[in-house]
Design a protein around this nucleic acid. Structure first.
Lengths: 156, 156
DNA sequence: GCAAAACCGACCGCTTCGGTAGGATTTAAG
DNA sequence: CTTAAATCCTACCGAAGCGGTCGGTTTTGC
């Protein structure tokens, strides 16, 4: 599995928040029941989303969570990264500001790392998919009269 | 991390086999020293590659391993899948012969799974990268006078 | 004051990861 | 025939992460 349920549950949580049009905050309990997920586990996940400034919280009775910005401006790479940590195909694959750096096994420098090409391509494919998908799309797609399966193919 | 060192080491192992032109089998010990990887761990990995018919073995003194087919015909999705198991972005994301099936949380059927679109795109991006890369490319890329970094971008 | 809610941190059983260890079996070379 | 090299097989092991659970504290509206 590329990702754990942290990403799965967290994305569902975000979609649930994105579905509500109003300005009233939504309690985690509401989300937990709607998605049938354990409340106390969602607490851990929403904490990560809050630290990443993807949701805001209001405490006390009738409190809850809201999206920190419009769903159209939230891309899924930020969401998944907040939940799962840095997204890289491999432990030794580090991104530095100035391009990529490999590798703990790339010794001697007498020849290129044999796996660099592969992981770079994989990295590109994943980030393109994640960064190219907005929360708004997921909300629309999963709506009762949402877009059809064809939308998946079209947006390749 | 999307993949563990099983994929990393296993791919290196395959590249090392692909580098040798001759028909003589290469011992794991040779590979282990060349790539500075623990021999006894490589044994586990090569067993998976053998079960997946990606390498063949000859036992006894001067034995070792060879690629089961030309490097041009070995795509990395088969290699990674042999090492890491089925590649899917998420536990609940199952591929059936007739398309995709979701989801353990997609209850009631009254609305689409909110994460299906996302994971389908991720899946597509990863498999495209893996299936679109052959072992021969990695061998060439990592050769002493191999192709430059630009090859990575070009082959997007 | 009470109840609802966000917050926080500790704990727990389970599986995987990365690796080690010890052997058994096969085979080529001397 | 013996020995060394190599594949093959199974069991084990510490560490870490996963998927929660629990108990409690704090904040806030009614």
């Amino acid at each position: 599995m590329l990702f754990s349920t942290k990403a799965e549950y967290g994305v569902r949580l975000m979609v649930e928040l994105g579905r509500q049009p109003g300005s009233a905050p939504i309690s985690l309990n509401t989300v937990a029941e709607a998605e049938r997920l354990p409340l106390s586990y969602l607490e851990h996940l929403v904490a990560k989303l809050r630290k990443a400034d993807l949701v805001t919280s209001t405490r006390g009775a009738h409190g809850g969570y809201r999206l920190a910005k419009p769903a159209e401006l939230i891309t899924m790479d930020a969401v998944v990264e907040a939940l799962e940590g840095q997204i890289a195909p491999m432990e030794c694959f580090h991104e530095t500001p100035e391009g990529k750096v490999l590798c703990s096994h790339e010794f001697d420098g007498d020849r290129a790392c044999s796996t660099k090409l592969l992981w770079t391509r994989v990295q590109g494919g994943v980030t393109k998919a994640l960064a190219g998908t907005t929360l708004a799309e997921l909300v629309e797609f999963s709506a009762p009269g949402g877009r059809t399966e064809a939308a998946i193919v079209n947006a390749a």
